[in-house]
């Protein structure tokens, strides 16, 4: 009996061999590019001595991790990282969905295309250039805001780079500005992929635009939204280094609201150049993201199995 099911199972797998063959190049690449290097995570637990070589260096347990937790900054950097990324996930997705829906509504094809090309522009420039542009806006002496905008409104100039309280808004804004055009394309592709017959039927039933969006568009793109949200959760302990380092110009006065795990690690190890400690930081970020995403995925699964990632 059991031999029978087993052979049937084998038969079943055999039937799918072309599919497995299709996946082969991709999986091979992942093994090479992603899984093989993961053994480097062991570096996080080692005291690297190049005379011995990496693999023969001494194991030192969690000593490389200590610098992440030992200071009073540990709380600040963790808090900042989580809050920023949380805001980025929620607002980023929300705004991208809204833009995608609006773009899809626009009937004038030329205009739609033009808007689409324009809002992706910020994605095309490097974060270093973004930091220059932000500086052009916010510089104390020569910035556009202090020199032109604030005087017009009759407000005194503000020394932006030493006032931490503005930066949560500035950084969130820049992040959205830079990324929204890009991520809305994903949603646009999903929306365009929706079968028009659904809308046809809805219109015949007299559903308003708003109703159509709520009952057709949004549910149809929920899998994509969930996927992006879950991926965001998985990377919640990482942050866009350029955004938090280059854009605030590494200004010490702003650390309270701009210091995140990545920048902390970078600054702390600039002089030491310790591979073990930087691997430890990466390991910590990955583990936390992994646990969170497993949890989030489990919750999603509970509500709707189809939407879960795995």
């Amino acid at each position: 009996m059991s031999a029978l099911t087993q052979s049937r199972k084998r038969m079943k797998i055999w039937r799918y061999w072309p599919l497995y063959l299709m996946m082969l190049p991709g999986l091979a690449y992942m093994v090479l590019n992603n899984y093989l290097p993961m053994f480097g995570l062991s570096i996080a637990f080692k005291d690297i001595d190049y005379r011995k070589g990496i693999w023969a260096s001494d194991w030192i347990g969690f000593r490389n991790f200590e610098f992440l937790f030992k200071t009073e900054d540990a709380f600040i950097i963790t808090r900042n990282t989580l809050l920023y990324n949380g805001a980025f996930i929620v607002l980023g997705l929300g705004i991208a969905v809204v833009i995608a829906i609006l773009l899809n509504e626009i009937r004038n094809k030329f205009a739609a295309r033009l808007y689409q090309s324009l809002i992706i522009l910020p994605f095309l420039i490097s974060i270093i250039l973004v930091s220059y542009l932000v500086y052009a806006m916010l510089s104390i002496d020569t910035g556009f805001v202090n020199k032109t905008l604030l005087p017009m409104l009759g407000i005194d100039s503000i020394s932006w780079y030493s006032e931490p309280k503005y930066w949560p808004y500035i950084l969130t804004f820049i992040h959205l500005w830079k990324g929204a055009g890009y991520s809305c394309i994903v949603f646009l592709a999903a929306i365009i992929g929706i079968d028009p017959e659904y809308y046809e039927a809805a219109r015949l039933d007299g559903a308003s635009k708003w109703m159509q969006i709520r009952t057709i568009t949004l549910p149809m793109i929920t899998p994509v939204i969930t996927m992006l949200a879950l991926l965001g959760v998985g990377r919640i302990f990482y942050s866009d280094f350029g955004l938090f380092y280059q854009v605030p110009m590494n200004s010490g006065a702003l650390y309270e609201t701009t210091n995140v795990i990545d920048t902390y690690v970078f600054r702390g190890l600039l002089q030491l150049g310790d591979v073990g400690m930087s691997s430890a930081a990466g390991f910590y970020q990955s583990i936390v993201g992994f646990i969170l995403v497993l949890g989030a995925n489990a919750i999603v699964r509970k509500f709707n199995k189809e939407n879960a990632l795995f």
Binding site: E66, F67, K70, D73, N259, G268, L269, L270, L272, M277
Partner: peptide, 10 residues
């Protein structure tokens, strides 16, 4: 090392 990384940040 641990202290060094923290102090450098400060």
């Amino acid at each position: 090392k641990t202290e060094y990384a923290a102090v450098t940040n400060v």
